[in-house]
Design a protein around this nucleic acid. Structure first.
Lengths: 245, 245
DNA sequence: CCAAAAGTGTTCAACTTACACCCATGT
DNA sequence: ACATGGGTGTAAGTTGAACACTTTTGG
């Protein structure tokens, strides 16, 4: 009961962050250096994750991981996948690592995976140990365990979700410009979007509310700010039945 | 190792079956009758599920459950959700039941949930114990544990999936008529579809191949059979970027 | 005045929706 | 002959895609 870790159940978090230019993800160093020779035995990266405590709900565990990294509660969080192949931690490097950090390498660990959405500029990552920081998705280092696979699934899940729910706002400040929103979609879907068509689409959405406020101190025509109105969204959300077959 | 059950990790299966009229799901009786009085202490229904064996992959466990119920391998199977709140099995009836079947009611059981798709008429459910059978989704009995919640999530996941991938075929025979396919969509989305518009849409899809073969022995104009061509689908699948924002 | 990003309309093609009748078969 | 479900086309409205120039600000 209480703070004892469950040996078989962990939670991994794919924390996406948008910095107005590209999409990033928080990774943590996994470094093991032989003290005598200075030789790097292990030098790669993992997603933030933790074993759940016994009697801790999965979502609470994910929120705990997020809080420890960002100091924030109430971050957008969504479960998207659970990995549970007994072979997933069985390669020699991972086995060696698990021994080094005092886990039983023989355990079958099922990992429940969540993704979260943030705006990079509104977060300062808390350093406790092992140096967590943002890495651009377009330029990732080598990932440990099956974390490349998990990240791939997370990306697919994010795109899917973004296709039917307006959660892009979670990666922007409360007030944002349409160009910022457009850039976000372009980055997530790795594409370019026509500015006029994009804005025409926005104009149809009642839950995107234009403010009187404008950008200040930019050396070009200042953009108008918009906010996302959740009330309007709830009213006008379209339960589309647009099946592809 | 081997056939020992993992006390904390289970797999539940939501097995959807289409019978050309409605959507059904396989449920299993949970019955407990007091021997003396004949009083029904428990009388409700559960989704098929099982604890995984130690060192068994999650998907293998799901396939095992499906095989035990249907005698079939290679059924469409998709993971959609994992429940892991320690409170999920803590109501008195469920606790009592767990004790009766020899499980430790205090364990925190994380359940990884899969849904599968079948055509009811092509399956005979294997009776081992506790009488599993099809129940119409529109007329469900009382469900045990948090299985009503899981079923709800499954239904949402099925609809979403059906909106961007043509997996409806998994609930039809290899050869099917367009009316059968239309009925399937109508039933899953609880709506009605215009016949001519539906068929116009189908005509655009190259992976729906019309056969020369027709229905036989029906007391009306016999319908042409169609098959789903996976090769064509892979060629023409559209990676649409149709975001709602 | 220059650089930088904001903002704005039109046209054409594709798709969606609504709608009614004849056809082939078994009984 | 009749009951049953199969099969077909058209017109109007809506949406998606392509495309270029003017505006506002800071430096």
């Amino acid at each position: 009961m209480g703070k004892e870790e469950h040996p078989n159940i962990s939670v991994d978090c794919v924390i996406f962050g948008f910095d107005f230019e590209k999409l990033n993800v928080i990774l943590i160093e996994r470094k093991l250096i032989e003290p005598d020779t200075g030789k790097r035995l292990i030098n790669d990266y993992t997603l933030p994750g933790a074993h759940i405590f016994k009697d801790e709900p999965l979502k609470k565990a994910a929120q705990r991981i997020l809080y420890d990294l960002t100091g924030l509660h109430d971050i957008y969080l969504e479960q998207f996948y659970t990995v549970g192949d007994p072979a997933r931690l069985k390669n020699p490097v991972d086995q060696f690592w698990l021994e080094c950090i005092g886990k039983d390498p023989a355990e079958h660990v099922v990992s429940v995976c969540y993704f979260s959405l943030l705006n990079c500029n509104q977060v300062t990552i808390q350093h406790k140990e092992r140096n967590p920081r943002w890495y651009p998705l377009k330029d990732l280092p080598v990932l440990a365990f099956d974390h490349a696979h998990i990240l791939d699934k997370a990306m697919t899940a994010l795109r899917r979700k973004l296709q039917y729910e307006p959660i892009g706002f979670e990666m922007l400040p409360d007030k944002f410009t349409l160009s910022q929103l457009q850039k976000l979609y372009e980055v997530v879907f790795d594409t370019t979007i026509d500015k006029r068509n994009f804005r025409k689409k926005i104009a149809r959405l009642k839950y995107l509310v234009q403010l009187d406020e404008k950008q200040q101190g930019v050396s070009h025509k200042p953009a108008r700010y918009y906010i996302f109105s959740n009330e309007e969204y709830k009213k006008t959300r379209n339960n589309i039945l647009n099946f592809t077959i």
